[in-house]
Design a protein around this nucleic acid. Structure first.
Length: 296
DNA sequence: AGGTCGGCCTGGCAGC
DNA sequence: TGCTGCCAGGCCGACC
């Protein structure tokens, strides 16, 4: 699943390929891709413009064209942006094709058809689009322990749901949320507002470390994420807990457990990430704390 | 208003 | 073997 490190990997590979090139034509093969805009509308907006930059915000790619025209794309679950120097046979599940001025082309391929491309006219429109959807950029200077604490304060949502909320932190998805929580030794179901200052600081550092490790490995390929040249990432081989149910914890050897948090498959070390206290149900009074139990 | 959940979509696979 | 049905999940909108 493309999360921040996967999108950043694509961006780094494609930026030198597209920057400075003219965008000759955009063929939208699946109208859903740019819904609700019409394919012809999107194609007309970008045709003939030079690409000035390929940037990233959260999990979004922003192809910045001359005249402040932005083609903003999201890969969602199964999207890929694949480059080839010469046009060839259409790849399966191609939703849109960008033809570049040097004869190369960029294919947006997406099995599950969740991926999107929209055109935004003007830098202000682009800024507004991101501002109303995305919170702090986790690899940017604004992502400090203090900023995280301010966001978390008073919230009762499980910390994993909090990490997945793009309006809080932009770019963290299911993989890197699990990895960061393990590194910070925090259970995903802990209410984020109940974390102490040390835990918040550890979480901030763990999010950054996990994302940077993902970028270093050029992303993770679980199902069908590919680099722009079709190669696979390698971070899936370096997961500490994600998708490792039953395998030993790299820290303590306890078997990794799988649970559900925020509606997502979630992996934890039950020993390194102690679960929050269960809410006591009405019934017989609980044993007083501190009193030693009878020996078994 | 914060939090949770279903819909979107398709390939892969478990189970009968 | 072949079919059914469930699972995966980023994001949005509906609902509590």
């Amino acid at each position: 699943m493309p999360e921040l490190p996967e999108v950043e990997t694509i961006r780094r590979q494609l930026a030198p390929v597209v920057e400075g090139r003219e965008l000759c034509e955009l063929r939208v093969l699946d109208p859903r891709w740019c819904d609700p805009a019409a394919p012809s509308e999107v194609a007309d907006a970008v045709r003939g413009r030079a690409a000035e930059a390929l940037s990233r915000r959260g999990k979004y790619l922003d192809l910045e064209l001359e005249g402040e025209v932005h083609l903003v794309m999201h890969l969602r679950m199964t999207g890929n942006l694949l480059y080839r120097a010469e046009p060839g046979e259409e790849r399966p599940h191609t939703r849109a094709v960008l033809s570049l001025g040097d004869g190369g082309e960029l294919a947006f391929c997406d099995v599950r058809r969740f991926g999107t491309g929209i055109v935004l006219l003007g830098d202000a429109a682009r800024d507004g689009y991101f501002a109303e959807r995305l919170g702090v950029e986790p690899l940017g200077p604004g992502f400090t322990a203090e900023a995280l604490r301010a966001q978390a304060e008073g919230r009762t949502a499980p910390v994993k749901a909090f990490l997945l909320s793009q309006k809080r932190i932009a770019g963290v998805g299911n993989i890197y949320a699990d990895e960061a929580l393990f590194r910070a030794r925090i259970h995903p179901l802990r209410p984020v507002g109940a974390l102490n200052a040390d835990q918040i600081a550890a979480l901030r550092d763990a999010v950054v470390a996990s994302l940077e490790a993902g970028i270093d490995a050029r992303g993770a390929t679980i199902d069908d994420f590919r680099h722009s040249d079709g190669a696979k990432g390698s971070f899936q081989d370096r997961f500490l807990v994600h998708r490792r149910e039953g395998e030993p914890c790299p820290e303590c050897g306890t078997a990794i457990a799988k649970l559900r948090a925020a509606g997502r498959g979630t992996y934890v070390c039950p020993s390194c990430q102690p679960p929050p206290r269960l809410k006591r149900r009405a019934g017989p009074p609980a044993r007083r704390p501190g009193r030693p139990r009878a020996a078994p």
